[in-house]
């Protein structure tokens, strides 16, 4: 990624360019540096927007100790792809409350973006998106995980996500009884 944009300019413009740099540098937990468009970062991440506005962005790499390099690379990749995609109605965000907020359908490129991720990378990205306050990316990744559950039995879900069944046989039977029918009338 191009890091040195704006450097090597004439001395008098340099200061202005520093303040007006159109990218920010992010540093992963393992010390790798990533460059991302300032505009996209501010638009897509409430946390980065707050840091940019508050001037707490470090030109030598803002430390994001909670995020590993693979996840951060995906975050940056997402921001850049997003900056290049045509914004659509699907991107209009709204406040989320359980069940009431409308679902924002992932766009084609977003689907492809998450489809290529391994399970681990996908979950890392959920955590990163949550940490950075990236609502849209959280939507896209959560959508993907919920799709992985679709049409699967509890057994299959445990298998897909490698979850240990910590119920006893009796407990499972009891919960199954509760679920026996779609409707209860008493």
């Amino acid at each position: 990624m191009e890091v040195d944009k704006g450097k090597g300019e004439a001395e008098e413009t340099r200061k202005v360019a520093e303040a007006d740099r159109d990218t920010v540098t992010l540093k992963s937990s393992d010390g790798k540096l990533f460059e991302v468009s300032k505009e996209a970062a501010a638009r897509l991440s409430t946390v980065l927007a707050g840091m940019i506005a508050g001037g707490s962005i470090d030109d030598n790499g803002t430390d994001l100790k909670q995020i590993g390099s693979e996840a951060l690379e995906n975050v940056v990749d997402y921001c850049n792809k997003h900056a290049n995609s045509i914004p659509s109605a699907a991107l209009i965000s709204s406040s989320i409350s359980f069940n009431t907020a409308p679902f924002k359908e992932p766009e084609e490129w977003e689907r492809k973006f998450v489809d290529r991720l391994s399970h681990d990378a996908l979950f890392d990205l959920v955590e990163a998106a949550n940490f950075l306050g990236m609502e849209r990316l959280l939507d896209v990744t959560c959508h993907k995980i919920s799709e992985m559950m679709k049409g699967k039995s509890p057994d299959q879900i445990r298998e897909v996500f490698n979850i240990k069944n910590d119920y006893t046989k009796e407990e499972l039977e009891e919960i199954r009884q509760e679920l026996a029918w779609a409707f209860y009338d008493d």
Partner: peptide, 21 residues
């Protein structure tokens, strides 16, 4: 994030997810 995922699962299959763990 867990809520966001569950929110996308319709309510009846969501109830079945109680069987997972």
């Amino acid at each position: 994030a867990f809520m966001e995922i569950l929110r996308r699962v319709p309510s009846s299959p969501r109830r079945r997810l109680r069987l997972v763990c």
